[in-house]
Amino acid sequence: MLSLSYDLADVFTDVFLGGNQLAVFAETTAPLDAGLMQAIALEMNLSETVFILPAQGHTADARVRLYSTVTEVDFAGHPLLGTAAILARDRAEDEVALRIETNAGIVPVSVRRHGGERFTGWMDQPLPDVQSVPGEQAERILDVLGLKSSVLPVTRYDAGIPHLYVMADDPGAVRGIVPAFPALGEAAGTSRINVFALTGPSSAVTRMFSPYDRVPEDPACGSAAGPLAAHLVRHGRLASGTRITLSQGDAVGRPSTLYAEAAVESDRITSIRVGGGVCLVGSGQLRLPDRGSTS
Rank of each mutant, 00 (worst) to 15 (best):
V107N: 00
A85I: 05
G176Q: 12
Q21M: 11
R254L: 08
H114C: 09
M1P: 12
H58R: 15
R65G: 04
E93L: 12
L8C: 13
A84V: 07
Q56V: 14
A159T: 10
E72N: 10
S210N: 07
S295Q: 10
D143S: 10
V151A: 10
G116H: 06
T155Y: 06
M123V: 03
L184N: 13
N103Y: 12
R287I: 15
G185H: 14
R243P: 09
P54N: 09
L145S: 04
P179V: 10
A97H: 15
S191M: 00
G19C: 04
A92L: 14
Q131C: 07
R273G: 08
N20M: 07
W122K: 08
Y212N: 13
E43S: 14
A180V: 12
P162R: 03
S271L: 11
V109E: 05
E43G: 11
A251E: 07
H78I: 02
R287Q: 10
P227R: 00
I244Q: 06
Q248S: 05
S110Q: 06
R63Q: 04
A168D: 03
V130H: 05
G82P: 04
K148D: 15
P128L: 09
Q125I: 07
F16P: 14
A84P: 03
P201E: 09
A173L: 14
V252R: 00
Y157A: 11
E217R: 04
D213K: 07
A30D: 08
T245Y: 07
L184A: 12
V107Q: 00
I141E: 01
D10I: 05
A187V: 07
A92K: 13
G18S: 15
Y6W: 15
T294I: 14
D7Y: 15
A262L: 14
F25S: 02
S47G: 10
H235K: 09
V130E: 02
V144Y: 02
A60N: 10
T28L: 00
